[in-house]
Every structure is written in structure tokens, then in C-alpha cells.
Design a protein around this nucleic acid. Structure first.
Lengths: 181, 181
DNA sequence: TGAAAAATCACCCGAAAGTATGACGACAAC
DNA sequence: GTTGTCGTCATACTTTCGGGTGATTTTTCA
């Protein structure tokens, strides 16, 4: 009658599993991870119960078997609980966005409007740039392959257009007006 | 002889506690929360065991007591495990540092280290600042109520210390070194 | 209190910077 | 083809700058 009992048990299990499936199908929008966790939990619980049942028959005769049984259950479920707890809290990573003001490297854009407004030519601006870098008229002349007098005329014109009396003042005004970086 | 035994026991406990204290003192930097958790866990475990012992004597006579016992243990330790797991899991808050380029108004801080390194005095720096603003030596002298010669000596010194040949170059170098805004 | 550092001023001289004026060629626009 | 702008260069002149030297006073600091 052993095989009959097994057959009945299987049928019983089959019915149960069908019912379970039907119930689960009725709740489709359930949180997936939660569902999975519960399923795994239930599965492990079932396995554990089975193991315990087996152990029960083995160890029930042994003295203090209840303590061993309880200890095993406690240890297993504690481990399971810890695992579950860790799993459940895993996606709880809080995102803190801390905005740090970064001194952006001053991206210089030439103020061409001001350039045209003052009627400063490209060449004159070029000379002004070299002046701002600290070059003397002679050095600028050598760098641009022109005479020192040419540099002087250009610089004089640029000073006049910037209303500057000195090259240092011209540089200062040029920076203020966005003509120099 | 009862009092003697008690005395010995107390002395023994005293020795033990002293040893324990010494050992604990040697390990001062142990993680506190971990310790607390373990202590709570152990305490609850002890209480639970006591409760179970009591229950054991009450329910052992009842049929299926082992199942009830195991279920209780399982439930309690599962709950405990979940709680522990939640506690143990670090508040996983991820800090995302997002650097946002903010056009921060150039907050100028004087590079005093460079100033001392080059041996530039306050007065010399002051003259350099006025030079950077485009003033002539005469104008600076008038502004500072000193003679033009004084301004010239100061500026000459500053040029020498900055390895500059011209005032424009001195201004440029001064800005590079963080001595001028 | 006494030496070192800093600030002040003066004089000279040469170099650099800046002004004024004129001129010439290239090139684009009208 | 005339006009205007731009870049180039020159001469002459004035102003400013920068180097060098020396000196005096004030401040600072040990």
C-alpha cells in the first residue's frame, strides 16, 4: 500500500500546486522581487520541514532531541531571516546628489561687438595681446616681422581707441571690455 | 563553609572581571554597533531559550508539541534574523558627487606663500597693484602721497623680484603667481 | 635697545614708450 | 577710378620708465 500512498500524495501535491498557481495568477502586479523572495522562503521552509520530519524520526529516540531539533530550526531560520533581511534592504541605496561648485576655467570669448564698436582692427588687437603678455615694442616687432615704428603706431591707435594713456592702462581696459583673456 | 565558598567565588569572579577588563581595554577600537547587536542577539536568545524551556514543560505533554515548538522557534528566530539582517545591513546610501560647473565669480585669494617666497613687501605689492590698474608712477605717487622716486624704487624692486623687465610683464607675472586679481 | 628690514627720497642717465605728422602700397567698396 | 580702410614705415619730439647708487627715517623684531 506504499505505492498507493505515494500516488495519493503526488495527487495531493499536484492539486496544491495548481491551486497555488491559480492564486498567484490572480495577483499579477505583485512586486517581483518580493514574490521571488517569498517563494524561495516557502520552498526552503518546505524542504526544511521535510528534513526535520526525516530527522524527527531519526533523532526522536535520542535524548535531548527536542533541544537539537529546536537549535537546528533556530539556526536555520535565523540564517534564513538574516539572508532575507539583507535581501530586502538591498535596493535601499539612497542617492545623495551633492552639488559642488567648480571654478570653471574662464572660457574667454572675444567681445567682437566691442571691438567693432571701438573700431579696433585685428592687427591692433594682436599688438594689444602681445603688450598684455609683457612684451616690449621691439620684441613685438621682431615677433611679427615688422618695424618697431609700426608697432608703435598700432599701439598708439589702440590706446587712443581705448582712451588709454599707457600700455598698462590699455591692458586693464582691454580685459574689462572682454578684448583680452 | 558556605561563606568561604562564596568568598572564593567572589574573589574568582573579581579576578575574572579584572582579566576581562584588561582584555577589553586592549581592544578599544572594536566596532560598537556590532558589539551591541551581538549582545542583544545573545540576550534575546537567552530569553527565548528560557521561554522555550518553560513552554517545553507545559506543552511537551500535548500531542504534536514538537511541531509547535519547532514552528515557534522557527518563527521567532526568523523574525530575529530578519531584524538582525535589517540592522546589520549598512545604510547603503550612495553619495553621488556631481560636479556642477558654476560660474563662480573669481574669488581672488592672495598667494602669500609666493609673496614671502619672493620677499615682496606689502608696499611693493601695493605699488604693483596700482601699476596693474594702469596708473603711471606719478599718479601712484600722488595717490599714495609719496614722491615719484619712491614709487620708482618700489616698482624697481618688485620688478627685480618678479624677474620682470617691464611693468606690463610684472603685471602678467603677478597675475600668474596669484599676487594680483 | 640695537640690528635688520622696510619705506622713503634724491639725482643721473639711458632706454623704452608714447605723440604727432606724413607717406606709401594693397585691397575692397562704391 | 575714386574713396576709404588697413597695414606698413619713417622722422622728430616729449614723456615715462627702469637701472644704478646712495642716503635718511621709520618700523619691526629678537
Amino acid at each position: 500500500y506504499g505505492s498507493r500512498a505515494i500516488g495519493q500524495s503526488l495527487r495531493y501535491l499536484g492539486l496544491r500546486s495548481l491551486l497555488l498557481q491559480a492564486i498567484l495568477a490572480k495577483v499579477p502586479g505583485f512586486i517581483n522581487s518580493m514574490k521571488r523572495h517569498i517563494l524561495i522562503y516557502g520552498l526552503l521552509g518546505g524542504i526544511l520541514i521535510t528534513l526535520l520530519k526525516l530527522m524527527e524520526y531519526r533523532f526522536l529516540v535520542i535524548e535531548r532531541s527536542v533541544e537539537i531539533y529546536g537549535g537546528l530550526v533556530a539556526a536555520l531560520f535565523a540564517a534564513l531571516g538574516i539572508w532575507l533581511g539583507l535581501r530586502l534592504t538591498n535596493p535601499k541605496q539612497k542617492v545623495i546628489v551633492r552639488e559642488i561648485p567648480v571654478a570653471v576655467g574662464d572660457l574667454f570669448v572675444l567681445n567682437e561687438a566691442k571691438l567693432n564698436e571701438l573700431g579696433i582692427t585685428r592687427r591692433e588687437l594682436e599688438i594689444l595681446e602681445w603688450i598684455a603678455k609683457g612684451l616690449s615694442n621691439r620684441e613685438i616687432a621682431e615677433k611679427l616681422f615688422v618695424s618697431e615704428n609700426t608697432v608703435k603706431t598700432h599701439s598708439s591707435r589702440v590706446f587712443e581707441k581705448l582712451s588709454a594713456k599707457r600700455r598698462t592702462q590699455a591692458v586693464q581696459i582691454g580685459k574689462e571690455l572682454g578684448l583680452l583673456p
